[in-house]
Design a protein around this nucleic acid. Sequence first.
DNA 1: TAGATTGTTAATCGATTAACAATC
DNA 2: TAGATTGTTAATCGATTAACAATC
Lengths: 208, 208
Amino acid sequence: MNEDYKNIPDIVIGRLPLYLRALQYMLLENHFVTSSKELSERLGISAAQIRKDLSQFGEFGKQGTGYHVEFLITKLKQIMHIDTTWDVIIVGAGDIGHGIARYPGFKNQGFRVTKVFDNNPEKIGQKIGDFIVEDSAKMANAIREANIKIAMIAVPASQAQQVADILVNAGIKAILNYAPITLNLPAGIKIQYIDPVVHLQRMTFYLE
Amino acid sequence: MNEDYKNIPDIVIGRLPLYLRALQYMLLENHFVTSSKELSERLGISAAQIRKDLSQFGEFGKQGTGYHVEFLITKLKQIMHIDTTWDVIIVGAGDIGHGIARYPGFKNQGFRVTKVFDNNPEKIGQKIGDFIVEDSAKMANAIREANIKIAMIAVPASQAQQVADILVNAGIKAILNYAPITLNLPAGIKIQYIDPVVHLQRMTFYLE
DNA sequence: TAGATTGTTAATCGATTAACAATC
DNA sequence: TAGATTGTTAATCGATTAACAATC
């Protein structure tokens, strides 16, 4: 648990990465000062909500001028605990595992993929980007030794729960699950889901 | 717009795919009748909420016994407009584009990838799974000719907005965006985002 | 019949927005 | 100074939950 900020709604936490992302693009554009109004226009989130969200964590702006982009980025990274780099492992070396193992977007965002596991003997030893696929049997030990807290699951749905159980048992505290199935996890373990089918189905309701 | 059901909160629509997914697994397990209580336990969503969500669309259960799994699946598919198959195109033939082009999970879920586009001459003509990468310049025409309504964006963030504008102009109504940037779209265009970094950052707040 | 579970209402809970004093 | 924008309060809006009559 984050001890510094208690009772902050999870929905607020969910917006922080979006604020961070927009601010980082501003910096790339040499845009050094912004306002809740400008962020609002970029993100489609009301200015009042952005100010209220940020105010949960402190006072980061100046009346009349707004927010200093670089300063707010630094603060948000501290709040989200990504002022350090988290080691992350990938379980599953299929197409999805491949894709995320080679994804360049983790760089400088607080994450570094360190290992890729699979239980298929044909895949173990294979090269994926900078990684050699390792045997899932060695996964739990590797997690404990390197004190890994975050894992991404990219195995078939039929194996996902079993994998999750092993991960949690070995000390994993946060899981990003690409398998299209809801996982059953102990309280305190964080979980996020990525399933393109769910996202697509959420939109077709509105299509004719 | 869905003309049959008006004023239904989007957050309810967002849960329907989860209900559907759980029900489909039940059917695989030859589990033919279920209840809001059982779905609740599988999904971590309260039974009251499940019943209330479903009741927005009709009466699908029976007092005392619960819901007939196959019947509810059929109904949910109708409600979400996935009782037909939607053609979907992918823009961007990099690692992410590769991953989703070969993803087997769309099958029988209402979606079929029909084309993959890229603007890189080195990629055009390349084979990806069952597809030959086509020139992005031909994208707008292809969308109009086949009356495509759904696209997945898997290009770098720097190109995503430009691609989105072309897609919308050609008639695309729903976009699943893998590029890590918030897109600016006209009202009425549906958008969903998949960014592993955002999902991970949402969890590290809670980690020490 | 007795037990189980729905669909629905009303109450509760939580999130968003509008408005504005403070102040840069 | 005048204009702009924050941080915050109170009001509004919306979503979730508890409870239960209806009924299979």
